[in-house]
Design a protein around this nucleic acid. Structure first.
Lengths: 107, 107
DNA sequence: TTTTATTATCGTAATATTGCAATATTACAT
DNA sequence: ATGTAATATTGCAATATTACGATAATAAAA
């Protein structure tokens, strides 16, 4: 096969996995860190910063955006991407509640 | 192409991505949750619990184990897998420091 | 409206991941 | 040593992801 059998898991488990997937590629982590450091972010700056082509960066940005982690609006010719910090905190909460409800009772 | 260009990123960025990858599949999240709920865990119980074959579960367990998240020792014929809670907390810290150092300054 | 600068999409190739059947290995009991 | 029950490994097929060149779309400026 090769496809994940998503239908056999509970919703909250799929949610955690889906969120984790966003951070599961270093390019996306690097992009998020870079945007976070800027006041205004222009996509082309990201291409200069990270050693990947413009289409590849754009593709990663789409993944981040589809997860609801970006807010964007146009300023001149450049698209200003900003982090949707509320969504970001939501993700943090999901992770922490997963981490906090996991314990070790044996061995 | 298709392979991630790991060499172009800083170590801490690769660390975050590597950790995230462990949680980026629902089977692994489900396995961790299940082990967490048990006092003693036998691998075959996991197969019964989750609708995947024994080799597939074993494969996912290897990924979790390679990340240092498990402690295991044999008890009779059954392998007792337990969560390495210290390593788990390490992961939580890495995530939280990433989340906490990310902010939104524009838009 | 044409040009220019920027970002998005398409098409394609390469690598990675997922899943399982078959088989091997392991640890314990007899 | 042999048998038994459990987990690990191997081999393979299918799907997903990553990356980039070529091209299209978009928005502002000339």
């Amino acid at each position: 096969m090769g496809a994940s059998k998503l239908d056999i898991y509970k919703t909250d488990i799929n949610t955690i996995a889906t969120i984790a997937k966003v951070f599961a590629h270093p390019a996306r982590v690097a992009i998020l860190q870079f945007i976070s450091k800027q006041d205004n972010c222009i996509c082309n700056d990201i291409v200069d910063e990270i050693g990947l082509s413009q289409p590849t960066i754009s593709q990663h940005l789409k993944v981040i955006n589809d997860a609801g982690l970006l807010k964007g609006n146009y300023k001149g010719k450049s698209l200003c991407y900003c982090i949707n910090i509320n969504r970001f905190r939501e993700f943090q909460d999901v992770f922490n509640s997963f981490f906090n409800t996991t314990s070790s009772n044996c061995c």
